[in-house]
Write a protein that binds this DNA or RNA. Sequence first.
DNA 1: GCTTTATGAATTGCATGCACTTGATGCATG
DNA 2: CATGCATCAAGTGCATGCAATTCATAAAGC
Lengths: 260, 260
Amino acid sequence: MNITRVKKGASRSVNDPTAKGKGPPAAGESGAISRTEAVQDALRQAIIEQRLQPGAKLPEDAIGDAFGTSRTIAREALGRLAVEGLVELKPNRGAFVANPSLDEGRDVFVVRRGLERIVTECLSGKLKADEIAVLRDHVAREREVSGHNEVESIRLAGEFHLLLARLTGNHVLVRYVTEVVSRCSLILAMYGRPHSSDCGVSEHGEIVDALIAGNGARAVELMDHHLEAVASRALLQQKAERDIRDVLAPYAARIRGLEA
Amino acid sequence: MNITRVKKGASRSVNDPTAKGKGPPAAGESGAISRTEAVQDALRQAIIEQRLQPGAKLPEDAIGDAFGTSRTIAREALGRLAVEGLVELKPNRGAFVANPSLDEGRDVFVVRRGLERIVTECLSGKLKADEIAVLRDHVAREREVSGHNEVESIRLAGEFHLLLARLTGNHVLVRYVTEVVSRCSLILAMYGRPHSSDCGVSEHGEIVDALIAGNGARAVELMDHHLEAVASRALLQQKAERDIRDVLAPYAARIRGLEA
DNA sequence: GCTTTATGAATTGCATGCACTTGATGCATG
DNA sequence: CATGCATCAAGTGCATGCAATTCATAAAGC
């Protein structure tokens, strides 16, 4: 439940700009955490979904306009996304969608494997019945869309790992896993082959089985291999396509950003 | 070349402060360093060193005044520290130094152990001569101050782990380790016994030895035990002292905050 | 006398204005 | 014709002002 903060206008306008200067933020929302978070979440989503291409410029005004807020909000959201590693902040130049190098990508995957190892160890043999049901259900859904809907497939794959992290009940772990999964999505989108992410659905199922069986070692092994497979699928491309993709992507992205 | 313009707010520079700016701030990215970052680093240091007690209020103007900047800077720094988990942001109430519960503390340590496991695995048998020298030197310094200067001792202990993380060359890893080390410092300060942190110097030495020897398994084991020891030292206190410390700390911190 | 409701001070949330930095365009020069 | 330099526009960096919220204090009601 991370998106619940959004009040009325989810992605379009965070604040109705009718009464721009003095408009009270629709007085008494309960649990209303600042608009900053809403914008931050929206931007994150947009980046992960590749609506905003890596390297694209993110001008404060444009973002403010797009969300019906001032630059202040946009700026703060960008700052926090920079901490998360999804945005790069260049002093006096502005913010850009992160454009991770392959080395960075490798780094992220290394950390991700370590984090998910913790998740797996925490969960092995400790899943409750209802939690198992949720997991099985999720894997089933993944299987459904596999092959049809690629965007959804990617989203669900990421969600699977987030789900596991949440089941640990370890909030710190959840935050970090969330971050690396986001960044991995970006990296896969950049370097992975178009339909390289469908694979692995069966692996998810196996991991769940091992977790239920309480076979921690096997679960960890499965998870690790799973992630290594995903990573290598992405990083293998480099040898062949690095020149084209890696070199051209930033420029292409920049052009796109200017068109928008 | 326009000399007539002198910025008013910049009168008391953020750069000069003899105050806390010591520790290696967010090493990694390019220098850059906006005022926001300076304030962020200073606040982080102050929190870690317990100059700012857990639960203490962090009003924007006070921070702005203290650093000679406006609330804007203070606000942004607080926002980012909140992402790091060192500051808690309560909507419409303001920012407070994080006051992690014991459960949170446990969570942080779990993640930390996982992260440092990665560090250890990355480093085992791959240290170069000059890196080894730096490590040995650091451990020697730790040994020197051990027993005498507690604050410095704690700082160096944290620094040792950061040093290892940096040696991996994995920036993502560095960032996360930095964060968990910070948070662990806070947690130890809150729940650990006064001089519980001196211990472990010899363990650091052993870890370095195992890394040099290329004995990855042993290094991981040592590191894991080391961290478990540190964690348990902190968490054991809870049974006896939870009621007093945990309950009273926030209030005490509040009072201190008001005095300041 | 104690609970409940107004009033006010302090502080956050947010927008906006102004100076400064940076990169681009056009002009003069070798 | 290429190179270096001044001018300019776009956009960031930061401070500040105003409305809204919250908490504390005081007044009114039972």
